[in-house]
Each structure stands twice: as C-alpha cells, then as structure tokens.
Nucleic acid binder design. Structure first.
Lengths: 352, 352
DNA sequence: TATCTTTGTGGGAGCGCTCCCATTTTTATA
DNA sequence: TATAAAAATGGGAGCGCTCCCACAAAGATA
C-alpha cells in the first residue's frame, strides 16, 4: 500500500528528481543538459533516477527560461500555387522540412491558411504566437504582409521560392525557374519542333513569370520567333491545361510547354480526346516530375523539381540561423534536371 | 532623441503595460483575458496602451502558468496508407483539422514520421513534448505503442480510423469501410455484373480488411459466390492496381472493385493498354473520390470519402475533450455516398 | 451617518526550468 | 601539512504569466 502510493507519484520536476537522487535541482539540470561539470558518480546516480521515473523536463518551463522553444513554424498560405489539386507539393515540402527538423531536435508548428480565414487575423495569430524560434514561409503571393512584418521584427525566417521584393535581404531556397523552362523548351527546339505553344502558370506568381520568361528566351535562342498566338495564360491547374490545349490546337502547334505537370495532365487528356497523337502530332514537355508523370500515357518528359530537397534546405538554413551558425543572408538555388521520357519523342528521333 | 529612445523600447510584458497604463499587472491580465471585473474606464485605458504598443502576452509564460498551450498535435506515421503517392489524403485531413483549430484558437504541431526515423525515438519525442494539449493520430498501423502509452497516461487523443484494439475506450472518427465497399460492389451486382474481381487494400490495415469484408458480403447478398480466384491482394498503390488487373483479366472478370482510387487509376491504365473497354468489357468501381477521379477516362464511379470532414470532426472532438466539454468516449462514423459516373456503365444501362 | 455589500484593484506565490554566483569538496603543487 | 587551483555542487533570482487572497473604493441599505 505504502509502496504503491510511493511508486504511483510520478516525478513532475527537477526538484523531485533531485530529492530522490540526493542532489540539488541544479545538478539534475546539468545532467540533463550534458554539462561536463558533473562527477561521473553523480551523473550515473541521477540518470538512474531519471530513467526509473521516466522523467523528462518540461519544455514549456525550459522555453520560458531560455527564450527558445525548439519549434519552427511552417506557413502555407492558401495560394493558387498550392491548391489541393496539386496535393503533392505541400506534403512533399513538409516531408523535407520534417526530415531535418526531426534530425536536429525541432518540432513543426503548422500554419495552414484556409480560404475562409481572414488574412489579417491569420497573420496576427502567427505573429503573436511566440512559440516558434523561426519560420519557413512557403510560396507566398506577391504581396505578403507577413514578410514585411518579420523583416521589421528582425525574425528568423526562410522563404521557399524567390521573394518578389527585398530578395537581397531575405533568406530563400528556390530553383532557377527561368532555366527550368529554358531547358524544357530547348529540348523541343532541339527535336526540331517549331510551333511551340505554352500554357503558362499563374502570372501573378514569380514562378509563373519566370517559367514564361524561360520559354521566351529558349525560343529566341533557338532562332524561333515569339508568337503571341501560341500563348495560353493558365494558372497551374488541370483545367487550364485541358482548356488551353483546345485553344492552341487551332493555332496549329506541333508542341507545347506546360508550366507544370498538373496542367500537362489536363493537356494530355484533351489531346487524347481530340485524337491527336503524342508525341507524333504534338509533343508535350512540362515541369515538376510528379509521381503521376510516369502514370500518364505517354510518360511525361518533364524537368524534375526537387521539392523535398527544398524543404530540407529551408529547414537546415532556418535552424542554422536560429542557432547562430550562420548570420549572413542565405540564398540557395537548387539544381534541376530534364527527365526525358516519351512525350516529346526524343527516343524516336534518336533512332532515326 | 529621448522620444525615440522611448518609442523604441517595445513593451515586453504585462508589467510594462501596467506601468504605462498606471495600473497593476493583474489588471492588465484581467483586461487581456476579458475578465468582467474591470471597470469600463480602466479597460479602455489599458486596451489603448496594449494597442499602441502592439503587445500580446507571451504564450509560453501563459502555458507554464495554466498548464495549457492551445496546441494540438497531429501524428502522421509513415504508414503504407499514407504514402506520398496518395498525397491527397494527408493534406486534406490536415486541412480539415486546421479549419477547426484556427476557428477555436489552437495551433497545430505536426509529427511526420520519416521512413528513416526510428519508431521508438519518434514516439519518445512526442511523448516527452508537453507542448501539446492533445493529439490526433492519423491511420496508425495495427500495433502502435504510442496509443498504449497515451491510453495509460490518460492523455487526450483522437484517432482517425477505427483502432484495432481498445476501440471501446478510444475516441475515433471513421467511415464505415464495410458499408462503403458493400455499396460499391452492390452497384456492380445491380448492374448485372457477375464476375466481380477485387484488388484489395493493405490487409494489415483495418480499412483494407473492412473493405474486403464489405466486398464479400455484397457478393453473398447479391447471390454470387465468393471466388478466391478473383481476389488480388494489393496495398492501395497505383502499381498494385496495374499489376492486379493483369492478373485478374486472365480470370475473365467483367468488373472490378478496387480498394481506392489510386489503385483504380493503375487498373484503368492497364485496362487501356490491354485494349479492354471500360465499362463495356470491365466495369470499375472504387473508393475515395479523389479530385483525379474525374480526370481519368472514363470518369470513375467511386464512393466519396469525406476526408476533410474527418479532420474537422477529429479536431472538434479533441478540443471538446481538452476543454472538458465532453467526457465520455466519442465515436463518430461519417456518412459516405456512392458517386455514380461512367466507369460502371450505370447510365448506359438506364438508357437501355 | 454607520454598516453591509458589491465591485474593482494590487501584489504575493507559484508554474518548472536556466543562469549565475557563492560555497564546498577534491585534486594538484609547493 | 599548508596552500593554491580546479572541479563539483547548491541555491537565489528571474523568465512572464495566472491564480488567489487581501484590501480599497463605490454603492446599497438601514
């Protein structure tokens, strides 16, 4: 009975452990924090009690004392880029972030803005929540008051994608979207395609603009003229790919560059319905290399987008920043690679 | 200069605000917490200072004092069910959770287990992280030591999907997977199909088992005999749908029930390659109603799976539990609905 | 005007840590 | 053995809140 009463009472804090181990609160704290200034004998004694009691220190109290929480925030605004149609982007990014966070002992506080949430309120809640040591902001729209706020507050944050303003003083991780599009379109040019249409992404987003820019450059460098007729302004969605191709088919294209795989899928669907052969009649090239890129017919030639790596780098930079391991502004541009499959007929040409 | 020095110094805590407003720390606390026992005059005076200083109370200190953080945890184990192939499930669930969390003033701490993370360590970190008032555990594998631990610790948690053990004392939100499969297969039966194959989900997961069970019941109730030849054991993946259909085609099926839309897509792909007409030669029915269900050819007849609603209910129950608004064990079974499109030929039959 | 309520306000104690300085104990050196 | 230096330990103060009790001020009742 007495024994039971004894073992029932779990140790709640350092003081309890200290009492049980016959040392002081401070010594227990030192043991837990791996302070070398503790004798081996004491350390063992204290660890034994800690293990036996299954004790772990209260992170809230620790946070109050140290002003550090070991939590990083991830803000996912409800932007057109991250719709649930492209449900792949966001979990993959998160997976990369989580990989590094887990490794370095950080937890992730997730801020998902719902379409019905008021933006001001959403921001206010993030800003006043001081449970985080730093933030990763994923693909924000062009104007984004949060960023100004954090900049002003001199807070630790890293953006995924290149910011449209203050890019020089903001930490970010991105790919070179111009180059990505350039590589894709050049591939078409090299295969002899000359009426190359495009279904653009959202042109209010840096990524969309950059990919469109790369398209234009590749055409020019390939000796082709840029033709406004061959542009269909889309928004990264399946639907715009589907609608876009119908519009472009009238313009007699022999190939199309879609700004992402989702819209490429829409395009492929429409092409199939129209009885147009891919790649023989119209070649399709895209960006992202989603898992579905190999599930469509024909398998999609697309530029691989290292989404998970983006998350890893963003988390890594942020934690370095938090821990004071780096101080100057960090810019990371990850390499990309054109994955040649069958939707452009590259292999057919080689065989000729 | 003096003025600047003055305005530069942001108020850090209640005491600062109190000093500026000429009241005590306690009164400021009362104002912030909407305690009615404050005179209107004082309240206004204090609010004015708070607004002017842009002050918000430190949540860490508050958490230490109240033993409540207003944070809920979401654990996503790296289970076969939630692979990134079905990237839709997890963000959608999260979206539902976030919707309610935002509304009720809670933040979300996300625990994503990476394949390389050690399970014990992962659990240990969650358990010792007392930054959360409660947890939502999404689709765990059958044995899941976390659950036992939380059960033992008498912690607040809600599972998404029906747990395999202790279901009577665990809060959960789910759909009736037996009924779901039953509805799908009965649809085929009613359309006169009689050689109905199935590509099952992962049979180590409750959902997979239940859907298989529903398939069997529907066959029996439909006056058909259950034939082992027509079963292909899959795992919810695209690949198993693809492979499964090839195996089943040899068995002369006239229709197939796939355990989810992802595997249905794989099946459709293989069917198309094999030159088999859908729905004329083989009808396909599935579960989930992902956005891609309307993007395939033909559009998929499938049972709608209210994933986002699951998240909403789970969050809602958890927060009720935390706030003491409910005490007894909560079990929610959400309704589902068969969405008839073209992959089973229902409309064709109607026209006949 | 005296007394009892009611309403409003202030400040101590405490949440469980860390940090720092003072003190004790041990070890090295003369 | 005396003394200096180094290593180990203890405990106060403080992080910024909330909670509670004591008290002051204002209003109601006799």
């Amino acid at each position: 009975m007495t024994q039971m009463g004894n073992s029932q009472k779990r140790s709640r804090n350092l003081e309890d452990i200290a009492a049980r181990a016959g040392v002081s609160r401070s010594t227990v704290s030192r043991v837990i924090n791996h302070d070398p200034k503790v004798s081996d004998k004491t350390r063992e004694k204290v660890w034994a009690v800690i293990e036996q009691e299954g004790f772990s220190p209260n992170p809230v109290a620790r946070a109050l004392a140290t002003n550090r929480t070991n939590v990083i925030g991830v803000v996912i605004p409800h932007s057109p880029h991250i719709t649930f149609e492209d449900a792949y982007y966001f979990p993959t990014l998160l997976s990369g972030i989580s990989k590094i966070a887990n490794k370095r002992g950080y937890s992730i506080l997730l801020w998902l803005r719902q379409s019905e949430d008021d933006e001001r309120n959403f921001h206010r809640r993030i800003v006043s929540n001081r449970l985080m040591d730093g933030l990763i902001i994923a693909s924000p729209p062009q104007t984004y008051s949060l960023i100004d706020h954090f900049l002003e507050a001199n807070a630790n944050f890293v953006m995924v994608e290149r910011p449209s303003h203050h890019a020089d003083i903001i930490n970010y991780v991105t790919i070179d979207n111009i180059e990505v599009a350039y590589a894709a379109v050049s591939h078409l040019v090299n295969l002899g395609r000359c009426r190359i249409g495009t279904i653009t992404g959202n042109l209010t987003i840096t990524d969309g603009v950059d990919r469109f820019e790369g398209y234009k450059q590749a055409l020019l460098d390939g000796g082709l003229t840029f033709d406004n007729e061959l542009i269909y302004e889309g928004n990264f969605s399946y639907q715009c790919g589907y609608d876009g191709i119908k519009a472009l088919l009238d313009k007699n294209i022999d190939s199309v560059f879609t700004a992402n795989d989702i819209s490429a899928r829409g395009a492929l669907h429409a092409l199939h319905e129209a009885g147009v052969r891919v790649p023989e009649d119209v070649a399709v090239v895209s960006v992202d290399d989603l898992p579905t890129a190999v599930q469509v017919t024909p398998p999609l030639t697309t530029v691989h987008h290292p989404i998970e790596k983006k998350g890893e780098h963003a988390a890594s930079i942020l934690i370095d920043l938090i821990e004071g391991k780096v101080s100057k502004t960090q810019h990371v541009v990850l390499p990309t690679e054109l994955i040649v499959r069958e939707s452009c007929g590259a292999y057919l040409n080689v065989e000729n």
